[in-house]
Simulated assay, not measured.
Amino acid sequence: MKTLVMGALCAACGTSAAYAQSSVTLYGVLDVGLTALSNQSGHGNVVMDTGVLAPNLFGLKGAEDLGGGVKAVFQLEGQFEMGTGTLDGNLFGRQSWVGIESDRWGTLTVGNQYDYMFTSLSWNRLGPEIYFVSLTNLRQGPFDAFGKPLAPSGDFDFDRTAGAQRMSNSIRYQAPVIDGLTFGGMYGFGNQAGTFGNQNAYSFGVDYMQSTFSLDAAYTLVKYLGIDNGNGGIRNFGFGGRIAVMQGWADVLYTNTRNTFSGATISAFEVGGTYPLMRATTLAFAYEFMKGNDALENNRAHQVNLTLDYALSKRSDVYISAAYQHASGDGNTATAWILDAAGPSTSGNQTILRVGMRHIF
């Protein structure tokens, strides 16, 4: 019986090889450097930290050609700390999904996936610029009272453009690109007995991309058990784009984030760009303005980000980056806090200076 079963399996494998081709790719990103902070809990500090210009990732992605322009696709991706070698979260906590991709009908995937605040407003909007966007460019600030669950602080990546949280137990549809236009939607199941809408989530995005510009918009609502017993959540929407300017790019983004239970709301506006200074050297810059409403004591922050990147090869680069944030508003809570800083400032100002190296495989 064992011989018959093994023979049947081998025959099936041989038949599959005749009709379909499969590919599996192992990939990863390594980023490490030294960061100097002007004020961390009242003191200056110099730390070795990792995953700043890009998160430290390892992953597998693959596809099997099923014929007729249809493929089975999957991706498994995890994140880790370079300094210690430990996992950052679960083994494949960054992405884990499987689905069907059709040239004609689009792509349907199921699993733990990025929502459209990241894929439309960061990945698609920035396009070639995203290679030079540091984690310190993304959102944090004097809004610790905002109350976003499952985050190191109440406002960590509040508009989800850093992709720090994914949408678990989700099903996602992405339409094919037609003349540069694509759209998609996804739904995250709450998996709660007796109610369909408790702790659920949904997200939508639309992108129009051409060789010299991009226009992008997204909407996401995620409900959390810690907000009104799973009936409330964090709602985000935003829109922006990029345009080619001389040899570089200019980009703009607006996001609006609201706690649907408390009414706390943060508006964020960003303008930036990238420009090649000389061969293998690129300058990335951005200015951000973030403002909370009355529920957040009208706290606000201005932030400037600069990154100078030098490519050693197609896969390796070294860089210097700096970020400065000035926060104001309520005297007790308007303390500066740049995303990825080890801790908040004790004043309204915080500066980060970093030297690092990145390798992609």
Rank of each mutant, 00 (worst) to 15 (best):
A295W: 04
Q325N: 12
N256Y: 10
S313H: 01
N349E: 09
I320A: 12
I266R: 00
G232H: 11
A295F: 13
T335H: 12
R242F: 12
A341L: 02
T257M: 01
Q325A: 12
P344K: 14
F261N: 15
Y275D: 10
V318N: 04
A217N: 13
L283P: 01
S267K: 04
T282W: 05
F285N: 08
R258V: 06
V252F: 11
M209L: 06
G348V: 05
S262N: 10
G230H: 11
S345W: 06
A218E: 04
D216E: 15
I243D: 07
T351M: 15
S262F: 12
A218H: 05
N298L: 12
T260Q: 12
G248N: 03
T265L: 00
Q247A: 09
L215C: 05
H302G: 02
A250F: 13
A327Y: 00
V271P: 01
P344I: 09
A341Q: 02
T351R: 14
T333D: 00
L308G: 15
K291Q: 09
T260R: 14
H302F: 01
V245S: 06
H302W: 03
G233V: 14
R315H: 08
I234G: 14
K291R: 10
S316I: 06
D294V: 03
N298C: 06
Y319C: 13
T281K: 13
L283V: 04
A336L: 07
T220V: 03
A336P: 08
S211R: 13
W249K: 09
N299Y: 00
D251V: 07
N231E: 09
A295K: 10
